[in-house]
């Protein structure tokens, strides 16, 4: 039996109180590949990622993570274990420090001593070492985003979802993010992210979905979509 893709969206639609946020989206993200979702504000990018992360249930269609529907109890349990999701607005415990958060994630995922090593590495990589004793409300928005990314990359996951991950990040940290994503993808993790910043390495992204008002405007390989008419017409390049 063939291994199911890390993520499959089959004719997925979602409405909010009669407003259609997403309509008949088809998307397959194999393991070890990277997909990018682009579009103007309000085009349905965040809804797509939330559906993929099981945070929203589709009003039509099917969402599967590693072959399991995200709407079933077993599927939800699997999503909690294997999907790492970076929100557009990071959430933290107000009473735990930067280091506490990483220690918490490492222990909750059973990383043991490996967690200590990886925590120190991620604190260095995301420039958080000197702020390990800070509480979240003492961090700038960029540093909060770095903390969210460090927590995300610390936990083991088969599918990484990132909503606007470059928001508030400086160019150096954006470089670190792309490098880390590339390494995770090469190690077999599937990656899906949305962004407006197109300064990532050309070989990182395998497929691009262009959304406009909740409808797929274009979908294909990176070079093919970037050369296509949709991204230009929508002013995304």
């Amino acid at each position: 039996m063939a291994t199911p893709p890390a993520l499959r969206l089959d004719a997925v639609g979602r409405e909010f109180g009669g407003v259609v946020a997403l309509e008949r989206l088809d998307m397959v993200v194999p393991r070890g590949s990277c997909a990018m979702v682009v579009g103007r504000n309000g085009s349905g990018k965040t809804t797509t990622l939330r559906l993929a992360a099981g945070r929203l249930d589709p009003t039509s269609g099917i969402v599967e993570v590693a072959g399991r529907r995200t709407t079933t109890e077993g599927g939800r349990r699997h999503v909690r274990r294997s999907v790492a999701f970076a929100l557009d607005a990071p959430l933290f415990y107000p009473d735990l420090t930067v280091e506490d958060h990483l220690g918490f994630v490492a222990t909750a995922h059973g990383l043991g001593d490996e967690g200590v090593v990886r925590t120190d590495d991620l604190l260095d990589r995301f420039d958080l070492s000197r702020r390990r004793g800070f509480l979240p409300d003492q961090l700038s928005s960029g540093m909060r985003q770095k903390l969210q990314l460090a927590c995300l990359f610390l936990r083991p996951s088969d599918l990484v979802l990132l909503d606007e991950p470059t928001r508030a990040l400086d160019p150096h940290t954006r470089g670190v993010l792309w490098e880390t994503l590339q390494a995770r993808r090469d190690a077999g993790t599937a990656v899906v992210f949305s962004t407006h910043q197109l300064d990532f390495p050309a070989d990182l992204v395998d497929q691009v979905v262009v959304l406009h008002d909740g409808v797929v405007a274009d979908h294909g390989g990176f070079a093919e979509v970037m050369d296509g008419a949709a991204v230009t017409e929508l002013g995304l390049t």
Binding site: R77, R81, L91, F92, Y93, P94, H101, V105, C151
Partner: peptide
Amino acid sequence: PLRIELEEPVLEELTPL
């Protein structure tokens, strides 16, 4: 801490719990 746990879904964002 229990109140914080119930107010914000941080636990579910960061861990499988």
